[in-house]
Nucleic acid binder design. Structure first.
Length: 340
DNA sequence: GTTCCACAGGAAAATATGGAGG
DNA sequence: CCTCCATATTTTCCTGTGGAAC
């Protein structure tokens, strides 16, 4: 597309995976984690790190930032997102794969143990840092025990709440008792503004966005840098199309709901047909469990879909609550489900 | 007070799914 | 193609809960 007055200089800086060269506003956390991992460079054991805080507070970004530093010192690292990699087997497999092991996995015998042994063998000489993002999504916490007992392996566990490990197996907790707990609180509005400023500086043409506009975005993002950046991205893309050479207040005001909506749609996309039906029924207004199941079955009839059993419906609803798509308030039959 | 209802959510059995090897 | 592995998902069976009905 030909643009006479482009606004975007470099769209990479607005993507989720972008890690800036310089991380501001997280000095304390960076220092802590750096100190925890520093011994590894000298071939000494590192200290495990437990990182927690709400979404969009730079947990993942900071962790990757620091492990990249270590990489330059010759310490390899592996990033695992437990949202996609939930089982013990998969986590081990991913780690080995990313460490460059050739895996011709014969899924015979106790493959999981074999993987564990392979990993131990591999790390006899060399150190590695393993990041487990969204650990609360792990379905089998045993993997934590596995990893924490491997010599030369240091973990960075990333989660939304401080309490995810509190009801873990005591053996795991005691192993992690010495871990460094690093909190990532919500950003202040001014912090977000600074972050946006940096991104605008490297991603946008100079002078296309006003300071006051960045402030507007920062205020509306309620401390979530991911939302803030995606608002700036969407507004910039609109401005690019408009060919006026700058971002207007309207672009920003329109981008806000779009950013939040996009975040939601992304999650809804990952739902299966039954979950989508449930979501749509709940979207029609708050509803109680019994009515919900009846309406759900009617919808299935209409689509000649075989309805799933009520226990599975409850599992699906539980999942959707976790994803923050719906809310469940109250207990037992007085529970009502509403859209989040 | 006892029983019943309508649901939540745990445990485990049952079933589906997928990859490797034949 | 099928079978033998594994994991993943769904269903069955169950216990617990708290208000309502008796």
């Amino acid at each position: 597309m030909y643009e006479e007055k482009p606004v975007i200089k470099n769209s990479d800086v607005f993507t989720d995976v972008f890690i800036p060269d310089q991380l501001n506003h997280r000095d304390g956390q960076i220092k802590s984690i750096r100190d925890d991992l520093k011994p590894i460079i000298k071939k000494q054991p590192g200290r495990h790190v437990f990182v927690y805080g709400p979404p969009g507070t730079g947990k993942t970004c900071t962790s990757i930032y620091i492990t990249r530093e270590l990489k330059r010192e010759g310490v390899p690292n592996v990033y695992v997102n437990c949202w996609e990699t939930q089982s013990r087997f998969k986590v081990l497999y991913t780690i080995l794969e990313k460490l460059g092991s050739k895996l011709s996995i014969h899924t015979k015998g106790t493959a999981t143990h074999e993987l564990l042994d392979m990993l131990k063998q591999k790390l006899k000489e060399n150190q590695v840092v393993v990041m487990l993002d969204e650990v609360d999504q792990l379905e089998d916490e045993k993997i934590l025990y596995d990893l924490v007992t491997i010599a030369n392996l240091t973990v960075i566990l990333i989660a939304n709440t401080e309490t995810v490990l509190s009801d873990a197996d005591p053996r795991i907790r005691s192993r992690l008792a010495s871990a460094d707990n690093v909190e990532f609180p919500k950003y202040k509005s001014e912090d977000i503004k600074e972050i946006l400023k940096d991104r605008a500086h490297s991603g946008l043409v100079a002078g296309v966005v006003k300071q006051s506009q960045l402030e507007t975005i920062a205020d509306a993002s309620s401390g979530d840098s991911r939302i803030a950046i995606s608002v700036l991205r969407i507004a910039s893309e609109e401005a690019d199309k408009s060919d006026t050479g700058k971002i207007s207040d309207d672009h920003i005001n329109n981008a806000l709901p779009t950013a939040k909506q996009q975040k939601k749609e992304k999650t809804i996309d990952s739902l299966n047909d039954h979950q989508k039906i449930l979501y749509r029924v709940i979207r029609n207004g708050e509803i109680q469990p019994g009515d919900l199941y009846i309406k759900y079955k009617q919808e299935c009839d209409r689509k000649s879909l075989e309805p799933i059993k009520d226990r599975t419906v409850r599992k699906y609803l539980e999942k959707m609550v976790q994803y923050n798509l719906i809310l469940a308030k109250g207990e037992t039959k007085w529970r009502v489900y509403t859209i989040a």
